[in-house]
Amino acid sequence: NKASVVANQLIPINTALTLIMMKAEVVTPMGIPAEEIPKLVGMQVNRAVPLGTTLMPDKVKNYE
């Protein structure tokens, strides 16, 4: 099972992601793969992401 990116804290809307905000966890359904964490640093979320929520591609601005 592959790990996904999960919010390590509440991430407010329009916040630029940092390493400390994210952790890798095996979750269902799968979100953004954990190996993409370095790519996500500096990207902004387009909505608030509660603690423990899986980061889905549609929650990150300009994620492809």
Rank of each mutant, 00 (worst) to 15 (best):
L10H: 15
K61D: 09
N8G: 10
M30Y: 12
Y63W: 12
M43W: 00
V60A: 01
L19F: 12
N62M: 09
V5E: 02
E35F: 12
N14F: 11
N46W: 11
N1C: 15
D58N: 11
T18Q: 10
V6A: 03
P57M: 00
V60R: 00
A34I: 05
T15S: 09
V49S: 02
P29S: 06
P50E: 11
L51W: 10
K61C: 11
P29D: 06
L55I: 13
T18N: 07
M30C: 15
N46G: 06
Q9R: 11
N8W: 03
V49N: 04
A3P: 12
L10Q: 10
I20W: 11
G42N: 05
E64Y: 12
P38A: 09
D58S: 10
A7S: 08
P29M: 03
E64W: 12
P38W: 09
A24N: 02
P38I: 09
G42C: 07
M30G: 09
L55P: 02
L19M: 11
V5G: 02
K2T: 12
V49Q: 05
E35D: 12
P57Y: 09
D58F: 10
P50M: 09
Y63H: 04
K61N: 10
Q44N: 05
V6H: 02
L40N: 03
A16D: 10
G42P: 00
I20G: 13
A16N: 11
E25Y: 09
V27R: 15
V5D: 01
E36I: 07
A34R: 00
L17R: 00
V41T: 04
K23H: 07
I20L: 12
M21A: 06
E64L: 14
M43K: 11
D58K: 03
K2P: 13
P12W: 07
L55D: 04
T28C: 15
T54Y: 00
L40H: 00
G52I: 03
K59G: 15
A24T: 07
V41R: 02
K2R: 14
I32G: 01
V60G: 00
T15D: 05
K39N: 13
S4H: 04
A16L: 13
A24S: 12
N62Y: 11
N46F: 04
Q44W: 09
